[in-house]
Amino acid sequence: MKTPLDLVQAAKARITEVSLDAAEQALRDADVLIDVREADEFAAGHIPGALHFSRGMLEFKLAADPSLQRRDLQIVLYCKTSGRAALAAASLLDMGYVHVKSIAGGFDAWAAAGKPVNKPATPAFD
């Protein structure tokens, strides 16, 4: 029986994972940046410009949006640490998307490196 880790490792063997150093260029080249974490994770902070399509709804959201159906779109995905993004990238390859990348280390590595993060505004209680 395969474990989730086995599935992630198999996905990572099939996909293109970009290093944190190469991620900023990948984002500049991307047509779309997708955060596949859960809604509460996205709301707590995300990479600027990211769309939120949770891992469980990713394929359905892409299929429902005509602007995201071109199979030659440059897509960059990320999650918390890169496991869900790897699984998502493999799924998109299976759907026929040909330019799919995942950010190694995910959002945690991005934020730890001091890269830009959109966070919710803290209300002022004056």
Results as ranks from 00 to 15, higher is better:
68 L>S: 06
22 A>Q: 15
20 L>F: 02
2 K>T: 13
83 G>Y: 01
47 I>S: 01
84 R>F: 01
115 K>H: 10
45 G>R: 08
7 L>H: 11
35 D>V: 04
26 A>M: 10
114 G>L: 05
51 L>C: 05
65 D>Q: 12
45 G>A: 09
53 F>A: 12
104 A>P: 00
88 A>Q: 03
19 S>Q: 07
58 L>A: 06
45 G>H: 09
42 F>E: 09
115 K>V: 04
15 I>Y: 02
102 S>W: 02
60 F>N: 11
58 L>W: 04
8 V>M: 02
80 K>E: 10
105 G>I: 00
8 V>D: 02
115 K>Q: 07
19 S>M: 08
102 S>Y: 01
17 E>L: 04
1 M>R: 08
15 I>G: 03
28 R>A: 15
55 R>M: 10
103 I>Q: 02
106 G>C: 00
28 R>Y: 12
89 A>V: 08
104 A>N: 05
101 K>A: 12
60 F>Q: 12
108 D>Y: 00
52 H>F: 02
48 P>Q: 06
106 G>A: 02
55 R>G: 01
63 A>Q: 14
10 A>V: 09
66 P>N: 06
111 A>V: 04
76 V>A: 06
107 F>S: 02
96 G>N: 08
84 R>G: 02
69 Q>T: 15
48 P>T: 07
124 A>C: 10
39 A>W: 06
26 A>H: 08
117 V>Q: 06
48 P>I: 08
59 E>A: 13
16 T>I: 13
25 Q>I: 09
51 L>K: 13
119 K>I: 08
24 E>M: 13
94 D>T: 14
23 A>I: 03
3 T>Q: 03
36 V>Q: 02
85 A>G: 14
32 V>Y: 09
112 A>P: 00
126 D>A: 15
35 D>T: 04
40 D>M: 12
77 L>I: 07
25 Q>G: 11
126 D>N: 12
95 M>A: 12
67 S>H: 13
61 K>W: 10
108 D>A: 03
45 G>T: 08
10 A>S: 14
109 A>H: 00
71 R>F: 05
50 A>W: 03
71 R>Q: 13
87 L>A: 03
15 I>V: 14
102 S>C: 05
121 A>P: 05
26 A>D: 10
111 A>S: 12
7 L>Q: 14
48 P>M: 07
84 R>A: 02
51 L>P: 01
92 L>K: 05
44 A>T: 12
124 A>D: 14
93 L>A: 11
34 I>G: 03
108 D>K: 04
123 P>V: 13
67 S>D: 15
120 P>I: 10
95 M>N: 07
85 A>P: 01
118 N>A: 15
111 A>Q: 13
6 D>C: 05
73 L>M: 10
